[in-house]
């Protein structure tokens, strides 16, 4: 119920600002995707530099007979929650199957549900995502669905039992920032579960902006993994995310100067 009643624990949160998802506490509000790094070793260093406590992972079919590096060894740390995703599935049925495989392979019931049948923009299918969320919650999964920045869809997902909603800022990998800003604001205002802004965050300033408008966390991958220096970029995102959060809690000043005193009061003179 993070962020639901901002005032209730206003002062408390300033001192002890934790993100709580499905009963689990997180100090870091930066989630990291592990795709597209140049090596497992760079990825591991970036994870450390980012301070993240939640990393997303994927699954692929093994090709028998080929020795493959065990990447889990680079990721699995006691303070890190693994968040396997269902990337590659195209409908709810495939997602449920993938979820069961993920639970077995990663030893966790946490799941980033992503169903994007459209190979061009990798945009999520809202109908299949909702359907899969309903099924997976009943099966005992902690479901974090990747979804369109659609406030009503987010409410339906929360009602279905999603642990968070993860609306997109812009298409995956586009690095375009908060293209869906107005809708993200509406989602954040109305959501009864934490809102994690996912996809499209291309620069630390985007992450800071998402946090400033009240997002509970951000998920970043491409912007870090393809940076010239991914480890330094991971640290930059760590600081930006924390700064944005701090600014949100501190209360931003007015951006407009349209509220200076007015000489006449045509609308309210009847009160004098």
């Amino acid at each position: 119920m993070d962020d639901v009643f901002s005032i209730v624990s206003f002062y408390f949160r300033k001192m002890n600002d934790k993100l709580i998802i499905a009963g689990k506490e997180f100090s870091s509000r930066l989630f990291l995707g592990t795709g597209k790094f140049s090596s497992n070793s760079v990825m591991e260093q970036a994870i450390t530099a980012s301070g993240t406590e939640m990393v997303t992972l994927a699954m692929k079919r093994v090709s028998l007979g080929n020795a493959e590096d065990d990447m889990l060894a680079h990721v699995a740390k006691p303070h890190i929650q693994l968040l396997p995703n269902t990337s590659g599935v195209r409908n709810a049925e495939e997602a449920v199957f993938a979820a069961k495989m993920a639970r077995e392979a990663f030893g966790t019931n946490w799941l980033k549900l992503e169903i994007h049948p459209d190979p061009r923009y990798l945009l999520p299918d809202p109908v299949e995502t909702l359907k899969a969320t309903e099924i997976l919650v009943k099966e005992g999964f902690v479901v974090l669905p990747y979804c369109q920045a659609d406030p009503v869809l987010c409410k339906r997902l929360a009602e279905a039992g999603a642990a968070t909603v993860m609306p997109l800022a812009a298409p995956i990998g586009s690095n375009r920032g908060l293209v869906t800003l107005d809708f993200l604001k509406a989602i954040i205002e109305e959501s009864s579960v934490p809102v994690v802004v996912d996809a499209g965050i291309g620069a630390p300033s985007h992450a800071a902006q998402a946090m400033e408008i009240g997002a509970s966390a951000v998920l970043v991958n491409t912007a870090i993994s393809v940076a010239a220096d991914p480890v330094a970029m991971a640290e930059a995102f760590k600081e930006a995310t924390a700064a944005g959060r701090k600014a949100y809690l501190a209360g931003l000043g007015a951006q407009s100067s349209d509220f200076s005193a007015v000489a006449s009061s045509p609308l309210t003179s009847f009160l004098n």
């Binding site: 901002s6 005032i7 509406a186 205002e189 931003l252 007015a254």
Partner: peptide
């Protein structure tokens, strides 16, 4: 605080 509130399109209880 008042100016901040009036400049927002979405206000919270604070």
């Amino acid at each position: 605080d008042v100016r901040r509130a009036l400049s927002k399109t979405r206000c919270d209880v604070e």
